[in-house]
């Protein structure tokens, strides 16, 4: 068995293990399904009654933001699960086996994509139920979902690296909340970033979360036809920039998380 075959075979074994774990802990899957429903309903009706986006319905404007917020929350399962496993000593078993060292992280992030797919399907259905519509061509819509899941996958690697550096599930949870809330809310998810005051506007426009949300809006056709998007370069070229972000995150965080995994289990 060569190195690549081993990564694939072992990655599949770990993915299968995680899938079994998800099946046996329905509360996790429940969170992935129920949280987005709560988000959609809460934001659509609470924020939707206060915030006015000229030219389009708030539901249309908001759903892509909720998609991205949900996958960011969902990606944290990766980090949390790894921190739990690290505490329980199962990695000691893995490390004494002649398996590929990157397979553990590949298996974990892959099984979390499956969770995110479930979450996205649920949100799409709920979104359609409250009046959100896809106005773009089918191939654009497909690219929209692919870009969303790719971003989720990349973000899983970020949370993996953070969790392996912090090592404890509780600390990870706190840090993840403190970081992800501003990341989501200092963006164009629920408000028009162009209308934010000076420094906040700059932050929101360069926030990668804004870029991916803008890309989703364009790919699903949730924009006002003919109206150009104000803002920084990444918002002007949102689709390309969001794919670039995802690739860049993977290039940095895959090797980083792998190194942290090797280090964190060899104490």
């Amino acid at each position: 068995m060569n190195a690549l075959q081993m990564v694939i075979a072992d990655g599949m074994t770990i993915t299968r293990r995680n899938a079994l774990k998800i099946k046996r802990t329905p509360d996790q899957l429940g969170a992935v399904i129920i949280l987005p429903i709560v988000f959609v309903l809460l934001f659509a009706y609470v924020f939707g009654s206060m915030i006015d986006i000229p030219g389009m319905s708030y539901q249309e404007y908001m759903i892509p933001g909720i998609f991205v917020q949900s996958v960011i929350m969902g990606a944290q399962i990766t980090g949390y699960t790894l921190a739990l496993d690290l505490r329980k000593g199962i990695f000691d078993r893995f490390r004494t086996l002649p398996m590929s060292p990157s397979a553990v992280l590949i298996g974990q992030t892959t099984s979390d994509v499956l969770m995110n797919v479930t979450g996205v399907v649920v949100m799409t259905l709920v979104g359609l139920g409250i009046g959100w519509r896809i106005h773009s061509a089918p191939h654009e819509a497909v690219l929209g979902f692919v870009a969303l899941l790719l971003f989720a996958y990349a973000f899983s690697w970020v949370t993996a690296a953070v969790a392996l550096a912090l090592r404890t599930p509780e600390v990870f949870n706190n840090v993840a909340t403190i970081v992800s809330l501003p990341l989501v809310f200092l963006s164009n998810a629920y408000v028009d970033s162009a209308r934010l005051p000076g420094p906040l506007k700059a932050l929101a426009e360069w926030n990668p979360v804004s870029t991916i949300i803008q890309a989703e809006r364009e790919l699903f056709g949730n924009t006002i036809p003919g109206k150009s998007v104000p803002g920084a370069w990444p918002l002007q070229h949102a689709v390309a920039a969001s794919l670039l972000w995802s690739v860049l995150i993977l290039v940095v965080f895959v090797p980083l998380a792998t190194r942290l995994y090797k280090r964190s289990v060899s104490r």
Binding site: R24, T25, K88, G89, I90, F91, D92, T96, P98
Partner: peptide, 17 residues
């Protein structure tokens, strides 16, 4: 690693499996 077996001080088994 393919020649050794190890059982640590704390059982390294997966609870949900």
């Amino acid at each position: 690693r393919s020649r050794i077996g190890a059982s640590g001080q704390y059982a390294a088994v997966d609870d949900h499996l």
